[in-house]
Amino acid sequence: MGRTAPAVPDVAAATANRVKNILAAPEYDSEMPAFDNAHAVALCRLWGVETVTERSLKFAVMERNLAVHKILGRWRWSEADLRDWIKGMRRPASTATSGGAA
């Protein structure tokens, strides 16, 4: 009676803080594959790209739209590769064709 549930750690906030620490490290190089799946998603969210998930990363690699580095059996991404992929995802709105005759 009267017991409270233990506090659940906020994994998303902890991951975002870890990403910020990686970016702030003096030896950090944007070309090095420093981000695992969860960190790559958190980095994209820090940039304001909310649609990126671990699944979308997997499909981007399978479709050869995103470079991946396999280190000790785990996928890693560099900031530069993620930025290039996101830039390629964005399409200008003016590319849509109108149905009317000119």
Rank of each mutant, 00 (worst) to 15 (best):
W85I: 02
E54L: 08
R74M: 09
L57E: 03
G73I: 11
R64I: 08
L72C: 10
A67N: 13
D36K: 11
E79Q: 06
A34R: 07
K87N: 12
P33D: 02
D81W: 01
L46Y: 09
S56W: 10
G73Q: 15
V68H: 03
L43Y: 11
D36A: 15
R76G: 02
S78R: 01
K58H: 10
F35E: 03
P33V: 00
D84N: 13
K87F: 08
G88Y: 00
A34N: 11
R55P: 02
H69N: 13
I86P: 07
D81P: 01
L46F: 06
A42D: 04
S56D: 08
S30W: 05
R45E: 14
L82G: 01
I71Y: 03
M32I: 12
T51A: 10
R74H: 15
F59S: 13
A80R: 13
F59L: 15
L72S: 11
N37I: 10
A67V: 13
E54Y: 03
F59C: 11
C44A: 14
D29G: 00
L82F: 00
G48F: 04
V68Q: 08
W85G: 00
D84Y: 07
W77L: 00
K58M: 08
A80G: 09
A38T: 08
E50P: 12
K87A: 15
E63T: 09
V61M: 06
I71F: 03
N65E: 15
N65R: 15
T51I: 14
T51P: 09
T53M: 10
A34W: 13
D84W: 11
E79I: 03
L57A: 02
K87S: 12
H69S: 07
L46C: 15
N65C: 11
V61I: 07
H69M: 07
E79V: 04
K87T: 15
I86R: 11
S78T: 00
A60K: 07
R76E: 05
S78W: 01
K58T: 12
G48Q: 05
G48E: 05
G88P: 12
M62S: 14
D36F: 08
E50S: 14
N65P: 04
V52G: 06
M32N: 15
A38G: 09
L72K: 15
A67K: 13
V68R: 07
E63F: 14
V52H: 01
V41I: 04
R45C: 13
R55C: 06
W47T: 02
R76Q: 03
W75M: 12
L82D: 01
L46P: 08
E54F: 00
A60P: 06
A38C: 04
E79R: 05
A38P: 06
V52Q: 03
N37F: 00
N65T: 05
W75G: 08
L72G: 07
L57P: 02
V52L: 08
P33Q: 01
S30C: 09
E63P: 05
E50H: 14
M62W: 10
M32Q: 12
T53E: 06
S78Y: 00
A67M: 13
W85K: 07
E63D: 15
R45S: 09
A67P: 04
M62K: 11
